[in-house]
Design a protein around this nucleic acid. Structure first.
Lengths: 101, 101
DNA sequence: ATAATATATGAAAAATAATTCATATAAGGA
DNA sequence: TCCTTATATGAATTATTTTTCATATATTAT
C-alpha cells in the first residue's frame, strides 16, 4: 500500500470516526435533510453542526442545494453507504462474534 | 441506525483514521511482524509505536505471541482487510473519479 | 545475580480536533 | 428598506489524541 493511499484512507476514516458526522450521514441515508432538521436530530448547537457539515462537504461526502432560505444536504452518492455497511459488518464481527459485551 | 452501532462504527473508524496505525495494519497484511521490525518501518520511536500497538490490540485488530524476547504481531483476521479494501475503493472513487488531484 | 535487549506503560507535553462565541451572509417577508 | 429566519465562518476555548520521557517488565546470555 502506497503513501498516498494511506493518506486518503486516513482522511476518510478520520472523517467517519466521529459520532456527529456518522449520525448526519446515516440521517441522509434516508432522505435529504435541511440544516435545521439536522440540528434538531443532533442536539448540538447550530454552529457546531455547521462546522461538521463543512467537513462533510469538503470531503465531498455530501452535496448541498439551497431552497429559499433553507439548505438541503444530500449524500453525494451511495458509495459511502457501502463502506458504512461493510464497517458495520466488521464491528458486528469483532464485537459480537465470541464475546458478550 | 441505532446509537450502539454508531458508537461501534465511531470506534473503529477512529482507530483506522491514523497514518501509523494504518501503516501497521497494512504491514501485517503481508505477514506477522515483530515490534522491532514495525519500529524500523515506521520511523517513529519505540514508545510511540508501542502505544499504537496497544490501541490495535485493545480493539482486537491484532493479536500477539511472544517468541523469546520478541513479540510477534499478527492481524486478528482478514475481516479488517475487506474493510480497508472497500474503503480504498471509496477513496478511489471520490478522489480519482472526475477530479484530478 | 547482573547485564543486555525487546517491549510495555504511566504521566506530562505537544499536537490536533471539536465546540463555543460573536458575527457575517443570504433570502424572504413586512 | 428594515426585520426576521436560516446557515456559514473566523477566532478563541475546550476536549481529545498522539508523542515523548522516564521507567518498568520480560527474556536471554554471561
Amino acid at each position: 500500500m502506497n503513501k498516498k493511499s494511506i493518506n486518503e484512507l486516513e482522511q476518510i476514516f478520520k472523517i467517519l470516526g466521529n459520532r456527529q458526522r456518522l449520525t448526519i450521514l446515516t440521517l441522509l441515508q434516508e432522505r435529504p435533510y435541511t440544516v435545521s432538521e439536522i440540528i434538531a436530530q443532533l442536539d448540538m448547537e447550530q454552529s457546531a453542526v455547521s462546522h461538521q457539515l463543512k467537513v462533510l462537504r469538503e470531503a465531498q461526502l455530501v452535496t448541498t442545494q439551497r431552497q429559499g432560505r433553507l439548505v438541503l444536504y444530500c449524500l453525494s452518492d451511495s458509495h459511502i453507504l457501502i463502506l458504512l455497511d461493510n464497517a458495520l459488518k466488521h464491528v458486528d464481527h469483532v464485537f459480537h462474534h465470541d464475546v458478550v459485551n
